[in-house]
Design a protein around this nucleic acid. Structure first.
Lengths: 212, 212
DNA sequence: TTTAATAATTGACAGTGTCAATTGACGATG
DNA sequence: CATCGTCAATTGACACTGTCAATTATTAAA
């Protein structure tokens, strides 16, 4: 162990702890993710992590930030590869779903965790925003091109809400039937696309569940 | 304190503890909801709750069961008051949203809580199912009447996923703009209605749901 | 080699969930 | 009325946890 930690050493150990934390979270939930257990798994003493993180909440925030960063990266990459705003929206939705399903524990730690004082971690907030921006931009462009009408933030949130809802269902095993999830994803994606494409002002005050 | 506890006494104390638990959860989250704090608030000693509940998880399950029971009751009541399946679906969606928004803490404890081994609490599972059944029934009836086509469970889940997504957004303060939530709710409700009513088989051969 | 800085460890404390042993209250019984 | 036996309630205790202060170990600089 060197006397002076290089910045790389610090980052490496932080990343190592984050990986162990995610694994512990996946296996035993937030409760089971104990600092002492983490330290033991890392092969160091109990309080060593305190030199790299302020406290337990700090570690959790770092874990979440790291995962949101991954999601942001892949989203930006997907967004850069599709020109048409509407097709880009669909591609983003699919990659979002793929990300969640292929890393269920990451998705869980990102969203199913106490986000009471999230704003105390500006870097985390930044990554969260960055992960949403590609979808936001696609919606804005669709609005500019006249395909959609409404507030970009709100529309983006509706899309995201639908995705999040169906992903949550899948991750908590509410969908038993094997290929139910793929079908539902398609239904949801198209339903939301249709919601975006419609003009609520025209249909005015009466809302219908069914339309002929 | 009487020597022999009547069944009513037991239920009363359980309910009392559940109320205190919900309050603690609302104020300090799951972590802050400590058994000792609960006991102190109830005016009894630390281990007295152990005579009424097996452990902490048991209390949480009871709290959630109690809330799901409320939701099931109001849903059944709403369902009984609307004959038309499609209108009933819409009414159920609105009452569902109203329930969540007027009791945000209850909603949070119902869904944003570690549901790892939920199946170990059959009564809780029963209330959860009961809370979903009115919507399920409405969807089934809509299918029987030919308005909709597809698997009732899956369609119900899509509806629920959308509602849950937008409610989650609202409860975590992601929607800043004052009346954003009402607008989004309307968009979501109509979008989902349209999803149910549409026939994707015509658009693409891979997925199906259908229209009137 | 000595020194000063800093990484890492250990000690300690308050707080938690939980079980075992103890105390306390009360209806039934002699 | 006094005693007993039962069950509710309390206290004691243990193994945990997060976290800070004090201590030790390590190593670059002098």
């Amino acid at each position: 162990m060197p006397k002076i930690l290089t910045a790389d050493d610090v980052l490496a150990f932080r990343q190592r702890l984050c990986d162990l934390a995610l694994k512990a979270f996946a296996e035993q939930g937030v409760e089971g993710m104990s600092l002492r257990g983490l330290a033991a798994a890392a092969g160091c003493s109990r309080t060593t992590p305190y030199r790299y993180f302020k406290n337990k909440a700090d570690i959790l925030a770092a874990v979440r930030q790291s995962q949101f960063q991954k999601l942001a990266d892949v989203s930006e990459s997907v967004a850069a590869s599709v020109a048409s705003p509407s097709q880009r929206l669909e591609a983003l939705a699919r990659s979002y779903i793929k990300f969640a399903i292929s890393s269920p524990d990451a998705y869980r730690v990102m969203f199913s965790v106490n986000q009471r004082d999230e704003k105390r971690y500006p870097e985390l907030v930044h990554e969260i925003n960055r992960s949403q921006q590609p979808m936001m931009t696609a919606v804005s462009e669709a609005i500019d091109s006249g395909d959609i009408e409404g507030d970009p933030g709100n529309i983006m949130h509706v899309l995201w809400a639908g995705l999040h809802g169906i992903i949550s269902l899948q991750l908590s095993d509410k969908l038993h039937m094997g290929r139910g999830f793929e079908e539902l994803s398609e239904v949801m994606i198209r339903a939301l696309g249709r919601a975006v494409a419609s003009n609520p002002a025209r249909e005015a005050a009466t809302h219908r569940v069914k339309e002929a």
